[in-house]
């Protein structure tokens, strides 16, 4: 039945050849207008939901950062201007930006991000190159690499917390059996080691993600340049650095940027493994501690806002660089 609808336009078109395209075009633009309207009708609910769960709360967080609201009674507050950020009072600087603990948290987060994403990229690349080879049981190994990715961060932090236990942990036992260390190490409480423990857990958990994205990029590479390199007898290591790496760099960059943005907001693994220790505290842990534990919504919101600005800056840079790729063909 539906077939009949556009038929008149068609017969008309056959009948009056010179003006034929006008009704057809009108029909086409009507369809296009209908589709445009439908597109917005489809989009608006989604945009409203995003406004309710993201836009409005973000606006309120920024608002709170200029007030003295408390967690226990969030509806009563007064305006304090930039006091939560930075204020000069009685010969002293106060506020988030004057708090050495905050700057320690910023440093911790940056250190964590650079080291863990760096290690994940290198390990992910090694795993991807291995899995890119043809061998029996490849599917099984690939499935196995997904296990850490699927395990909740909390659970992996607890699992590693147990493995890194200072008295009964298997890692200390292994290192002592191998003669690498003489005394058991207190991984999660020792100021020099705890950040490395956090990085270890994060690397374990997120390397599979990097490996799979890298593997996908590797599998899309054309095989002809490899055959040419093989015929010319070029060493595989040279082929990797001259051909493979440049070709997968764009895909690798996308994965790295996603991981960087994710690492900058790290919370779970640090909170569970080392709780509120200042040696490993990230920006998110700092902000939440102010908000919930110290009940200071104003101050905590100021810290959250600074974190948001840092990530926004990183995101905008990325979007600006990747604009062409995203806006591309429909």
């Amino acid at each position: 039945m539906a077939h009949t609808t556009p038929a008149p336009a068609e017969t008309e078109a056959v009948g009056k050849t010179p003006t034929a395209s006008v009704p057809a075009r009108r029909q086409a633009s009507k369809v296009r207008r209908q589709r445009l309207r439908a597109a917005w009708v489809f989009l608006i609910p989604m945009l409203l939901v995003l406004a309710a769960v993201a836009g409005w709360p973000l606006f309120r967080t920024i608002w709170f950062s200029f007030t003295d609201a408390s967690f226990a009674n969030i509806s009563e507050y007064s305006w304090v201007g930039f006091e939560n950020y930075l204020v000069y009072d009685d010969g002293m600087w106060f506020g988030v930006l004057a708090d050495p603990t905050w700057w320690q948290a910023v440093w911790n987060t940056l250190f964590f991000t650079v080291v863990s994403v760096g290690a994940e990229t290198v390990l992910g690349l090694i795993i991807a190159l291995t899995l890119n080879a043809q061998f029996r049981g490849r599917g099984w190994i690939r499935a196995a690499t997904l296990i850490p990715w699927a395990i909740p961060t909390i659970v992996s932090a607890k699992m590693w917390g147990w493995m890194l236990h200072d008295q009964f942990g298997i890692i200390n036992d292994l290192l002592m059996t191998l003669g690498i260390i003489a005394e058991p190490l207190n991984w999660t409480a020792n100021a020099d080691l705890s950040m490395w423990a956090v990085i270890m857990v994060d690397v374990w958990k997120t390397t599979p993600f990097m490996a799979l994205l890298t593997l996908a990029a590797l599998q899309m590479l054309p095989s002809d340049c490899y055959e040419a390199a093989k015929v010319d007898g070029i060493h595989p290591v040279r082929v990797f650095f001259k051909v493979t790496l440049p070709l997968i760099t764009p895909a690798l960059m996308v994965a790295i940027i996603f991981r960087v943005l994710d690492a900058l907001r790290v919370f779970d693994v640090i909170y569970v493994l080392t709780s509120n220790s200042e040696d490993t505290m990230s920006m998110s842990v700092y902000a939440r501690q102010q908000l919930v534990q110290f009940q200071d919504v104003g101050y905590g919101s100021a810290a959250s806002t600074v974190l948001f600005l840092i990530i926004a800056l990183a995101t905008i840079t990325y979007l600006y660089l990747g604009r062409k790729q995203i806006g591309g063909e429909a």
């Binding site: 995003l50 709360p57 973000l58 907001r265």
Partner: peptide, 21 residues
């Protein structure tokens, strides 16, 4: 862009606003 931007939101940045809602 908005959709991608929201997916990059640090959760802690909306914590106090969401708590109020």
């Amino acid at each position: 862009m908005i959709v991608l931007g929201v997916s990059m939101f640090p959760q802690v940045a909306v914590l106090s606003g969401l708590f109020e809602v």
